[in-house]
Design a protein around this nucleic acid. Structure first.
Lengths: 391, 391
DNA sequence: TGCACTTTGGCAACACCGTTGCGAAAGTGG
DNA sequence: CCACTTTCGCAACGGTGTTGCCAAAGTGCA
């Protein structure tokens, strides 16, 4: 619960329960959820839920929203999250382009900007550019952002609550109504410190403290993560339950792993290195220096137009993953998959079905998923508010 | 924290903090640990630690044990776990033999029994035999169990505390001083319900509710898990930190995964299916019906005496695992490895080293580990007492 | 030997958490 | 119109960790 050490005191307990209720409110969406349902789902008493929701309502984070039909007594009052009470910006920073979105507490996109970037221009220039996009997105210049009139007013309230609830991480000068900025990018990096390791082709980025640089410039908290992890987090928040793997097949092949509802990153943010799983001993050489990696085999098949073989290879690697981790679901994404999903879905499904027949268990379902990396990046900031620890 | 739902109330908070302190006391061993160190490690205030340890001392679970050297003021008083305050029995049930150990709270083996079993004799007969071994072990008949005089007396106290602290799971008639029994066995099974799925070669075991049958007979809580998971849990409790994989190479090849200090089992207790990871597309057929599984390749190499090749194949599969999960350590065990450890250690190490050179990170260490499955099985029972949730 | 100082750890009062007991509010059904 | 059911808040309560304070037990210097 507490990351550094395991001790739980009363404020921590309060934060935890409050976050839990907020998460359920978010999950219920615009339809709302009653106090008694919240009590059942959390295991707390109805009275405790009343107190917690009372604080949330006072803080402007929740409101009453109609009633459910009576079942013979007083009808349940529905509660709903106030989406506009807080915002976060998520940025998908790729090698040559950038996509930034502003989302509200419910995760709905309320503003979007795209721009070209040149990583070769140096870290400082890119930080400046990214900061500019964030500011434009928040102040509404050039964005599609309507839905702001009330939102900005409530924003500072939301921040106050966040601070009182023990969530906020010392936002200094800062932009109005902005809880923080999440940045997702490829390369290896250190998620906990927000430091980049090696950005392929741009050695000058090695060791650059992106998180702190951006946080100092913007005055709001910043979180940094791998693009595949952000995508997986976004899917988890969007409603995918349990444990799943998001396999992204684009210019490369990577994975984001969600285990028990939380993204698994490993101690060095290295987890999800799926592309260089070896599936053919002494197979063809890969760019990484090893031989027989899935990525090499799969992309080679794609290049020569043999999508069925690409899907079969991907399926075998996915089967390994499913067997090793006993996950519930495989999600496929990335340009290569989304352009022609069917052969990939069929191919991976065939391998997983065959495996299920051998073990006698139900086959693990395979689906496609939109790759909304920027949206997931925004959730890097929102996750702590809703009790989704980023271990 | 709470498995079913996430809500935390005061009793849950108290249990959690108490378990945390108990875990630190256990980790400190006979040397002991001071109240202030406990406070630092838990993040609680010294006063809170004093209250918690006071309850533990009153319950007979902890005692004062000397003082540390002064650093200019009052010297710190050391506290120590009372190992004899509780016991658990762990059973390693294999195809043809059984090993049962009785351990104290510190995990020290204080009694051991071995016996032949015949799974073909049917579930009821085996349950009867297992129960007999447990009773013999606890009453001290035929065991090497000295160290019992005081232990049994304190036992009932310990149970009282466990109940008061919210740990106990309703032990009815029950054996004296016994907190529970853990059973580890191969085959696929459902850890949460304690039901076996398919025991290879013995179809009549399919669906047998081993946990409940044994619990009803003995009157104490029973936990059931895969042998590799138990072994991994035992290693985690014995002091291995962080995330690691225990690879067991015996008559088959399996793995136990520990991620962030807790055993990862997956929703269907299927995780750790390492032997049938495919590392050679369309490779030689495996007993499982697939082709190119590590287990088949590795064991074939062992059979023809090529241990270097066996180790290389094992290393490549281990490398896949390390890359996918970003774990900190690989531990090797099982008859085949322990009989001639060196070639395996060298072979796996070579593959992981090469991987580390390519990625520019520190290589993941490889070591051998004793396969103490029965000891780990006992920890299935003790784990909840020390706050190690078995999710 | 005496005294100042540091550090540990317990006692008592405290703030605040979720819980319990009870009553008001708001429906349904006869 | 009334009995009944169900929801939900107010007030008192028990129990958590926290704070303030002080006794105990060392070290180090005069």
């Amino acid at each position: 619960m507490n990351r550094t050490n395991g001790g739980v005191n009363l404020p921590a307990l309060r934060s935890h329960n409050t976050a839990l209720v907020l998460d359920l409110l978010r999950g219920a969406g615009a339809g709302g959820i009653s106090r008694l349902e919240l009590a059942e789902r959390t295991g707390l008493t109805p009275q405790a839920v009343s107190k917690i929701t009372g604080r949330l309502r006072e803080a402007g984070l929740a409101v009453e929203a109609g009633h459910r039909a009576s079942t013979g007594g007083k009808p349940r009052t529905l509660l709903r999250l106030v989406p506009g009470a807080g915002h976060a910006v998520g940025i998908h920073l790729d090698r040559d382009a950038l996509r930034a979105v502003r989302v509200d507490l419910a995760g709905t996109v309320v503003g979007e900007r795209c721009a070209a970037v040149d990583l070769g221009a140096g870290a400082e220039a890119v930080v400046r550019a990214v900061a500019g996009e964030v500011e434009a997105l928040v102040t509404g210049v050039g964005g599609e952002g309507e839905a702001d009139a009330g939102a900005t007013a409530l924003g500072s309230d939301a921040k106050g609550v966040a601070a009182r609830s023990g969530f906020s991480r010392a936002a200094a000068g800062s932009l109005p109504a902005l809880l923080g900025v999440g940045v997702a990018l490829p390369g290896p990096l250190d998620h906990t410190r927000g430091v980049l390791h090696r950005v392929t082709g741009f050695p000058e980025w090695d060791g650059f403290p992106l998180r702190d640089a951006l946080a100092r410039r913007l005055g709001v908290p910043v979180a940094v993560d791998k693009d595949t992890n952000a995508a997986a987090l976004g899917l988890a928040v969007a409603g995918e339950r349990g444990s799943f793997a998001y396999l992204h097949l684009g210019t490369g092949l990577g994975a984001g792993l969600v285990i028990g509802g939380t993204v698994h990153r490993g101690a060095r943010t290295g987890a999800g290195e799926f592309g260089h799983q070896v599936v053919q001993l002494d197979g063809p050489p890969c760019d990484c220096g090893d031989r027989g990696c899935v990525e090499a085999l799969c992309l080679a098949a794609v290049t020569r137009g043999d999508l069925a073989e690409a899907a079969r290879v991907l399926g075998i690697a996915a089967g390994n993953l499913v067997a090793l981790l006993d996950i519930d679901l495989v999600l496929l994404g990335g340009r290569t998959v989304t352009s022609t999903p069917d052969p990939f879905l069929r191919g991976v499904d065939a391998v997983l079905d065959a495996r299920a027949r051998r073990t006698g268990e139900k086959p693990v379902p395979v689906r496609t998923a939109p790759d909304e990396v920027a949206e997931g990046a925004a959730q890097l900031v929102l996750a702590p508010l809703f009790g989704r620890a980023d271990a």
